[in-house]
Write a protein that binds this DNA or RNA. Sequence first.
DNA 1: GACCAGGCACATC
DNA 2: GATGTGCATGGT
Length: 223
Amino acid sequence: MSLLALYERLFAAFGPQGWWPGETPFEVVVGAVLTQNTAWRNVERAIARLKKADALTPAAIAHAPRAMLEDWIRPAGFYRQKAARLQGVARFVLEEGGMEALAEAARRNTDAARRKWLSLHGIGPETADSILLYAFDVPIFVIDAYTKRILARLGLASSEATYEDLQARFHAALPRDAKLFNEYHALFVALGKDFCRARPRCGGCPLLAHCPSAQVAQKAACR
DNA sequence: GACCAGGCACATC
DNA sequence: GATGTGCATGGT
């Protein structure tokens, strides 16, 4: 099964996902940091608290007392680390002239922009690529734990494959289209949440229903 | 009461 | 370079 065929199948099964659920590009950035190893539900709580405090702007986060920021984002977990990361990112946004300037830079030279984001403390490959794709609409494919797991289970990639390996495969196999990359990654997450989460549900997975090779794979791989 | 969630940095070998 | 560990809350 090709990666494009897998996309068609996932889209048919789950429909459009409408990511990223943020009102502004900066909210996407904040969400990308807060969701690190964290359920989205808890990120939503933290973002709601930031909004309630009128603190969901680069300036507000950059200048907030650390303890106050920690308290606002507490529901998302790892709050000490994430408060430090968010303040670093907020300062970076201000220094670079704001989100619009950063969007412009990302579209002009994606590789340079990606390296710059990666140089920030707490911004790794997945977070950087999520920001580029979901905040700036730059066509770069986001690889996450679900993507790795699903591809391995479907026999479409080795479980040893690195982030860069997998990303290169998506870039080679698909048209360079931010909308497509956006939906595809979100569909992996949708499937990941559903895929073999509980044994009894495996048989009802909408992907497996149409995919004999996946049915074979899941017998061996489903935990 | 484990185990997991839309990772990352750092220590150690 | 590969592997292990801390970070922390909230749901299942």
